[in-house]
Amino acid sequence: MTQPVRLAVGDAAPDFTLLTDSGEKFTLSALRGRKVVLYAYPAAMTPGCTKQACDFRDNIASLRGAGYEVVGISPDSPAKLAKFRERDQLTFPLVADEDRSVLTAYGAYGEKQLYGKTVTGVIRSTFVIDEKGRIERAMYNVKATGHVAKLRRDLGLD
């Protein structure tokens, strides 16, 4: 199985400009000076991705209070992301990487194991990016359930 190139602590976070759930352009470097939690998920409105997004939503006040901006990224279209945001009352931007180029640059798209089979798809991942645009944490193959709680512990928020 070919593994995608993975980011490591200290690497520059690949910059990108993508459309959001509201149809506006989002550029990662526009958040320089702030800490960012960028999380990659396979598909909007699926059970695991919904659980993870709602966990971020439910913890957004404490994450923002600690100086973190949260951004979700998936290969879904902006229209599907808008439905996801509205349906689950998500309070952070969702960005559409329809050609999967940004997910690939972050090592969050490639071959993975799914129910014992090798498939190509989004590797559920979370990246903590510091104020200078550097990777502070790169977490691959995270679980949809319980991940935000673990992230909060890792960041010293609990």
Rank of each mutant, 00 (worst) to 15 (best):
L94G: 01
A12T: 11
P14T: 01
D154K: 10
S77V: 00
I135G: 10
Y39L: 00
V148H: 00
D88T: 01
Y109Q: 14
G65P: 02
Y106K: 08
L7V: 11
A40P: 07
P4S: 12
L90C: 02
K117V: 08
K150V: 09
E111A: 09
V119K: 13
S29Y: 04
A30Y: 05
S29H: 04
P47A: 15
D158Y: 04
L151S: 06
K51L: 13
S29G: 12
V119S: 15
P4C: 12
T104M: 14
E86F: 03
Y41V: 00
T50V: 07
M45P: 03
R64Q: 15
G146A: 08
N141W: 15
Q3D: 12
E69A: 10
A144I: 02
V71K: 00
G33Y: 12
T50E: 14
Q52N: 08
E69F: 05
R124W: 05
V148P: 05
V36I: 05
D158G: 13
L94H: 01
Y109N: 10
G10Y: 07
I73K: 01
Q3F: 14
E111C: 11
T104W: 09
T27S: 09
S29L: 07
A30F: 03
T145D: 14
R87F: 06
A44M: 00
V119E: 13
F56W: 04
P14V: 03
E136R: 11
D58G: 06
Q52A: 13
P75W: 02
A44E: 01
K117S: 08
L103H: 06
C49W: 01
S29C: 14
R134K: 15
N59W: 01
P47D: 08
E24P: 08
K51M: 07
G133Y: 11
M1E: 15
K51H: 06
G107E: 11
K112N: 11
Y68N: 09
T104D: 15
P75V: 01
